[in-house]
């Protein structure tokens, strides 16, 4: 069965979702929202991998998506623990208020 949606449309969708994630990371101030935007970007890349996998009729793209999900789960566990630790000490989750390295 030939695909009726060409590969390029999946890539354009992935590009749009990735860009929205980039905007979220760059312009929002809440660390939680920044994390959600990172998940958005990871998902866009996953979509791209799966689309290419379909095009080449190869399972390797699916495997990469599997690994990306595992890394994302690890990243979220650690990242949210860090956010909780910062919040307990500084009573804030805004990245603008965490500037100890600024000197």
């Amino acid at each position: 069965m030939a695909p009726t949606v060409p590969l390029v449309w999946y890539q354009v969708l992935a590009a749009i979702l990735f860009t929205i994630g980039v905007v979220g990371v760059l312009v929002r101030r809440s660390a939680l929202i920044i994390f959600m935007s990172i998940e958005l970007m990871l998902n866009a890349v996953n979509l791209s991998f799966v689309a290419f996998s379909r095009q080449h009729a190869s399972m390797d793209g699916h495997i990469i998506v599997f690994f990306v999900m595992a890394v994302a789960a690890a990243e979220v566990a650690i990242g949210l623990a860090i956010i909780v630790a910062i919040f307990r000490n500084k009573e804030t989750a805004s990245v603008d208020d965490v500037h100890l390295l600024k000197g």
Binding site: V71, A77, I78, I82, V84
Partner: peptide, 19 residues
């Protein structure tokens, strides 16, 4: 191994006081 490290790291971060 990565997931194991992540779990241990999350527990350590959640327990101790930093800063």
């Amino acid at each position: 191994i990565l997931l194991l490290v992540a779990v241990i790291g999350a527990v350590v971060l959640a327990k101790r006081k930093f800063f």
